[in-house]
Amino acid sequence: MMIVFYIAAVIAVAATVMTITLTHAVHALLYLIVSLLAVAVIFYTLGAPFAAALEAITYAGAIMVLFVFVVMMLNLGEAAVEQERRWLDRRMWGGPALLAAALLAELVYTFAFGIGPGGPSGGGVSPHAVGAALFGPYLLAVEIAGFLLLAGLVGAYHLGRRRTDAEE
């Protein structure tokens, strides 16, 4: 299991690095999908098969498709890739990388010393338990999430409308 985890982790990190460095949007998205699928595998190794399936279905299968869809609609072409390459100036990486490194160091430090001794109690969590928790103590949150989705739907529909010149 640990081998699977490490392979997946390496794939995830590598794919994410590719995502953030590539200039071509569709290629970057493909790498991002790979990264997400790798994370799904990691979920599986963490004993969360339900979350793994959801990650694949929703994240990789639906949300990313939306991304691809939009990138396809924009259909920027080679010029955009060139532009992106120009924008990705080497000098621009310094500050953000430093910031991210600091954050990473802090987080790792916290995890390393904060998780405490003692092996994880472990044990997978079945979809049944997740569902019971969702519609038990988290029922209100589920309702709110439903509202959030509805708001997202309405917002996206409104924003996505192609305005005619008369409306401007």
Binding site: A40, F50, A53, A56, I57, A60, G61, A62, V68, M72
Partner: peptide, 18 residues
């Protein structure tokens, strides 16, 4: 989670066409 796995795979099959 066989059923979910099936769904995951079919949802990924979109990419092929797209």
């Amino acid at each position: 989670i066989g059923l979910l796995f099936f769904l995951a795979m079919t949802s990924l099959s979109v990419y092929s066409v797209v």
